[in-house]
């Protein structure tokens, strides 16, 4: 019984982590660039949700969600314009640093604008819990899982069933060829950053209700996203989701049997074991290599 309860919590947490990781993979696949600001974008999304709630009092989270995602998409475009596009044809490590710099700006901008206190955003549909078969399920957990599933499915549909998605994929596979085919590559890249930031915003809203948000929350999240994406297979979308669920499982389920410290150590040892058996991650390499 308690295990089922922990599973629900774990999947809810993993679903939110999956959104963080997916935003990271999107940008990675489209540009080959590692966006170290992804964790801080999630944090920014959390604070944005808190701030918007101040303007629209008593609005439930599902009303705020599209607003947060839209505003975060604009932030994503700004990030691509300042931190990626100027460095596009430069050594790829430059983007490490430019996105680290964006993260520093976001984190300290949040401290100055919102103060250092932890904040909580509104729940998606209201708090409370309901009981299924003796299981206490927080409404928010189910709402988080459903929202994340919806967003992940929506993203899948966008990429496989729409003209825009085909253009985005073409840009990701070979920007030179895409440009030759008349696809506006720069706009596609900016759009990818917008999508990645919108997903980060959604994750920020979902996480900051149950788990609060502080200006320094981003660094822990980028670490989790990086691990999820790599262990799943660099650039693999399903790999990133599985990786995120794996991390959450260690955080919530394994730490029920071991201490938190032992569970964290077990997570890292499991990662090393996975790499020993599958040196290309669980789902294999999906992203094009930057030669």
């Amino acid at each position: 019984m308690i295990l089922a309860q922990l599973m629900v919590n774990g999947i809810a947490l993993g679903a939110a982590y999956a959104l963080v990781a997916l935003g990271f993979v999107l940008v990675l696949n489209a540009t080959g660039a590692v966006n170290f600001a992804q964790g801080d974008l999630v944090m920014a999304g959390g604070f944005l949700a808190v701030a918007l709630a101040g303007f629209i009092p008593d609005a439930p989270g599902f009303v705020l969600l599209p607003l947060v995602m839209a505003l975060m998409a604009l932030l994503g475009i700004a990030v691509s314009a300042t931190a990626y596009l100027p460095l596009r044809n430069r050594p790829p490590v430059g983007v490490f640093i430019s996105t680290i710099a964006v993260g520093i700006i976001l984190q300290n901008g949040a401290t100055v604008l919102f103060g250092p206190e932890p904040k909580a955003a509104a729940p998606l549909f209201g708090g409370g819990a309901f009981t299924i078969a003796g299981l206490q399920v927080p409404t928010q957990s189910i709402a988080v899982i459903a929202t994340a599933a919806l967003l992940i499915a929506g993203q899948y549909w966008l990429f496989t069933h729409t003209q825009l998605g085909r253009r985005l994929r073409a840009t990701a596979q070979d920007p030179g060829m895409a440009r030759a085919c008349g696809i506006p590559v720069t706009s596609m890249i900016a759009l990818t950053f917008a999508l990645g930031a919108a997903l980060a915003g959604a994750a920020g809203l979902l996480l900051s209700n149950q788990f609060f948000v502080t200006p320094s929350a981003g660094s822990g999240l980028i670490l989790k996203a990086y691990i999820a994406v790599t262990i799943g297979g660099w650039g693999s979308l399903p790999g990133a989701v599985i990786g995120a669920l794996l991390i959450a499982a260690f955080e919530v389920v394994v730490s029920y049997t071991l201490s938190y410290t032992a569970a964290t150590a077990a997570l890292y040892l499991a990662l090393l074991a996975i790499l020993a058996v599958r040196p290309q991650g669980l789902f294999g390499e999906a992203s094009r290599r930057r030669a």
Binding site: L6, L207, T264
Partner: peptide
């Protein structure tokens, strides 16, 4: 007695234990 990392989000496991 158990120590909890400040990055841990879900407190259900430690509460249960």
């Amino acid at each position: 007695e158990e120590g909890v990392d400040p990055g841990i989000r879900d407190m259900l496991p430690v509460l249960t234990k």
